[in-house]
Amino acid sequence: AVTGGSKLSRNMAETGRDLTKRGLKVGVIVVDKVSEATSAVVHNVSELGESFGDLVAEAKADLAQERSNTSNGSAVEKVTEVTVEG
């Protein structure tokens, strides 16, 4: 009976080890996929931030130019309505 119990314990230990290893593999795959997705999102947000920053800089430059033209007697178009569509 002792020998059979030892063999059963070994089988259970091996089964537990295999299940644990499979679970770890799934975990590694999930972490890799989440990391890839996060990197892509961070990259896209970074590009969007840069693009928005560029637009703000261009708008400021345009305003400065328009103010300069106004002080030189040139007419400046007044913006009365802005529509943003996403």
Rank of each mutant, 00 (worst) to 15 (best):
N44T: 00
F52M: 07
L19V: 13
V42P: 02
K60E: 14
A59C: 13
R22Q: 14
V34N: 06
K21F: 13
A59H: 14
V31T: 09
S46H: 03
N44K: 02
L19P: 03
V56A: 04
S35K: 15
V56D: 01
E47P: 02
G23Q: 12
L24F: 11
V28R: 07
A57S: 04
G27M: 03
G23F: 08
V56W: 00
R22Y: 10
D32I: 14
K21A: 15
E47S: 06
N44R: 01
S35I: 10
V26L: 12
F52Q: 05
V28Q: 09
D54N: 10
T20D: 14
D32P: 03
S46V: 01
V31D: 08
K25R: 10
K25Q: 12
S51F: 06
K33P: 01
V30D: 12
V26K: 14
V31Y: 04
K60C: 09
L19G: 15
E36K: 13
E50M: 01
K60N: 14
L48Y: 06
G49D: 09
L55A: 05
K25T: 09
A57M: 05
G23K: 10
G27A: 01
I29L: 05
V41R: 05
G23R: 10
T38Q: 11
K25I: 07
G53A: 01
H43F: 12
G49W: 00
A59W: 09
K25F: 05
V26H: 12
I29H: 06
K21T: 13
A40Y: 06
H43E: 15
D54H: 07
A40W: 05
E58P: 05
E47M: 05
K60P: 05
S46D: 08
V56F: 00
E50D: 09
K33A: 04
V34Y: 07
A37R: 07
A57E: 05
V42H: 04
N44F: 01
A40V: 09
E36M: 13
V28A: 07
K60G: 06
V45K: 00
G27Q: 03
N44S: 06
G27E: 04
L19Y: 09
N44V: 00
E58G: 03
E58C: 06
S35C: 14
F52S: 05
K33H: 10
A37L: 12
A59L: 14
A37P: 01
E58I: 10
V42N: 06
V56C: 03
E50P: 00
A40R: 08
G23E: 13
S46A: 04
N44A: 00
V41M: 05
V34I: 13
D54P: 02
F52D: 02
V56K: 02
V45S: 03
L48G: 07
T38E: 07
S46C: 02
E47R: 06
L48D: 08
V31E: 08
V28W: 03
V34K: 08
S39K: 11
V42M: 10
V41N: 03
L24C: 05
A59D: 15
D32W: 08
K33T: 11
H43N: 15
L55I: 02
F52P: 00
A59P: 09
E50G: 02
S46P: 02
I29T: 13
E47D: 13
L55E: 04
A37N: 07
G49A: 09
A40I: 09
H43C: 11
G49N: 12
S39N: 10
